[in-house]
């Protein structure tokens, strides 16, 4: 829809919605909060669900909130279990095509495997600049 900001017309206000979730048992949410805050400042709506989420809770929140991107923060080392499980649950909710990004402590080898097998669409690790995440999300949501 044509953008008509300021011309008294209703305009289509497409906003990028991102779920930032912490599945599993680790209690370190600083990273997730930093990312959530950065995405907010980039103009996105961030649905933050807090700590200790089960894969089912994450997938169901993604569905109810109709997010454009799912972001998982995992520092527990359980990513090879949690990520495929969540991807599977998303697929079972007609959300297989929703981009999924993982952030946290993920060894390079695991990251490659998650990407190669289609469980994750991006893996970000400590040291990656926040702009990289923002740009990736914007790229993924372009043209919708």
């Amino acid at each position: 829809m044509e953008r008509n900001r300021g011309w008294g017309l209703t305009m289509s206000e497409r906003k990028i919605r991102v779920l930032v979730a912490k599945p599993g048992l680790d209690g370190h949410d600083r990273g997730a909060k930093v990312v959530a805050r950065a995405l907010r400042d980039a103009g996105m709506e961030v649905i933050y669900t807090g700590l200790h989420q089960t894969p089912e809770q994450v997938a169901e929140a993604a569905l109810q909130e109709d997010v454009d991107v799912v972001g998982l923060s995992i520092l527990s080392g359980a990513h090879m279990t949690l990520v495929p499980r969540i991807k599977e649950l998303l697929a079972g909710r007609q959300m297989a095509d929703v981009p999924l990004m993982v952030g946290g402590i993920v060894p390079e080898e695991d990251a490659q495997k998650l990407l190669a097998e289609g469980y994750a669409d991006a893996v970000f690790t400590p040291g990656d600049p926040l702009e990289k995440i923002i740009d990736w999300i914007k790229e993924k949501c372009r043209g919708e």
Binding site: D41, G43, E45, T49, G50, A61
Partner: peptide
């Protein structure tokens, strides 16, 4: 300022998510 938002009310309601 940015049009962004942190929507955090779900945190308290996640027991009902399923």
């Amino acid at each position: 300022f940015t049009g962004g938002a942190i929507l955090g009310d779900r945190i308290r309601m996640q027991d009902h998510a399923l």
